[in-house]
């Protein structure tokens, strides 16, 4: 079981990183989505794995429970990563609509503004 979870985290991380290294905003958003799955599962797994031991207190005597703390952290992390993805999507959409291009890298040609600044500083 441990290997299943660990290998899934690894695969999701690798896929996410490969996608955020692409040149288009949409691929990067997909990559970040995969990365947030990976991170959430990773954090969740830091409480170690347990089957059929949900952290819901049982009224019948001593029972053992899985670690609730990582779950609480991951719960908010899922919601927040949704919020951040939404902001990112909106910014990417805005950038695309305004510049007609969804590349994430700036064009490599020397910038005119930088040139004049450099001269003024001399």
């Amino acid at each position: 079981m441990e290997f299943i979870v660990a290998s899934s985290v690894g695969t999701l991380t690798a896929a996410g990183i490969y996608l955020i290294l692409r040149l288009r905003a949409f691929s990067t958003i997909l990559g970040l989505a995969l990365l947030s799955y990976a991170v959430n599962v990773f954090l969740f797994a830091s409480g170690r794995l347990a089957i059929d031991l949900p952290p819901i207190l049982s009224p019948y005597g001593d029972a053992s429970y899985t670690d609730p703390l990582p779950q609480a952290l991951v719960l908010t992390a899922i919601v927040i990563s949704f919020g951040m993805t939404a902001v990112l999507v909106m910014v990417a959409l805005g950038a695309y609509l305004e510049s007609d291009d969804d590349r994430i890298d700036l064009p490599q040609a020397p910038d005119e503004d930088d040139k004049t600044d450099g001269e003024a500083a001399q």
Binding site: E2, F3, V5, A6, S7, V9, G10, T11, L12, T13, A14, A15, G16, I17, Y18, L21, R22, A38, F42, A45, S46, G47, R48, L49, D67, L69
Partner: peptide, 26 residues
């Protein structure tokens, strides 16, 4: 990029596997 991604993903996966098999105080 694939090499970077595989190295990072492999690292994270290995890390997860290592700590999943060990206990820590909580």
């Amino acid at each position: 990029d694939g090499a970077i991604a595989l190295a990072a993903g492999g690292g994270v996966g290995a890390l997860a596997y290592m700590f999943l098999l060990r206990d820590i105080p909580t």
